[in-house]
Structure formats: structure tokens, C-alpha cells
Amino acid sequence: MNVSVELTFTPLQNEYEPPISAFIKRVRASGFTVLENPLSTQVYGDYDGVMHMLTKEIKNSLSNIDIGLFQMKIVKTDRSSYVADF
């Protein structure tokens, strides 16, 4: 089953950019389709593989900061090729 996952990582600290950049670089290296915009990162692929990778990378990211949060949306379909037609 293919999924589209949208993530927003918010480290609650003054130096918030380095942990976000590190997370995005690790997700990019995962081999899944990854798209980014200024507000979130989207990951597309097989549910089991994506969730396995995200479980590992989210834990890694949270382990390296004092306080932070992840927001995640999951859609049951691969929307990576979506193009607005309006």
C-alpha cells in the first residue's frame, strides 16, 4: 500500500535550524521520493518502508534535542505526481 506522508518538525529551542536540516538530509538519503517546501517535508512510498524509516529518523531527531514536536499527516495513496489544475 502506497502512502503520502507530510511532516513538520519543530524543535522548541533557539537553534532550531540544524536539527531540521539534519532530519531532512537523512530522509532524503532514504531512497524514498521526498519533496520539500518551506513549511513541511513530504515522503512518498510503500507504507511499511516509509513508516519504518520515519520511526527511526523521528526517534533520532527527538533524541538530539531537549524539546520538540512532529506533526504528521498520512494519506493512503501516492500523491507525489499531483499537479494543481486550477
Rank of each mutant, 00 (worst) to 15 (best):
P19R: 06
P19V: 05
D85M: 03
I65H: 04
L35H: 09
A84D: 00
M1G: 06
N60P: 02
M1I: 07
G45F: 04
D78I: 11
E17F: 12
I58Y: 09
S30L: 12
N2Y: 07
A29N: 07
G31K: 06
I74L: 15
S21W: 03
D46F: 04
G31T: 04
M53S: 08
T10L: 15
S80G: 04
R26A: 13
Y47I: 02
F23G: 13
S63P: 02
L62H: 09
R26Q: 11
H52F: 02
E17S: 15
F86R: 14
Y16L: 05
I65K: 07
P19A: 02
P11L: 10
S4I: 09
D66P: 02
G45I: 00
V27H: 07
K76H: 14
G31Y: 04
S63K: 09
Y44Q: 03
N14I: 11
T77M: 10
P18A: 08
T41L: 08
V43M: 08
Y47A: 03
G68W: 07
E6R: 15
D85T: 08
V34R: 02
A22V: 07
F70R: 06
N37E: 08
K56C: 08
I58Q: 09
N60Q: 10
N14D: 09
S80C: 11
D48Q: 11
V34Q: 06
L35N: 10
R79H: 10
Y44A: 03
K25G: 08
V83L: 03
T77R: 13
D85W: 01
I20N: 00
E17Y: 07
V43S: 07
D46L: 04
P38Y: 03
V34N: 02
G68T: 06
Y82L: 12
E57N: 00
M72C: 10
T33S: 08
Y44W: 00
M72R: 11
E57P: 03
G31I: 03
Q71F: 15
Y82M: 12
K25Y: 12
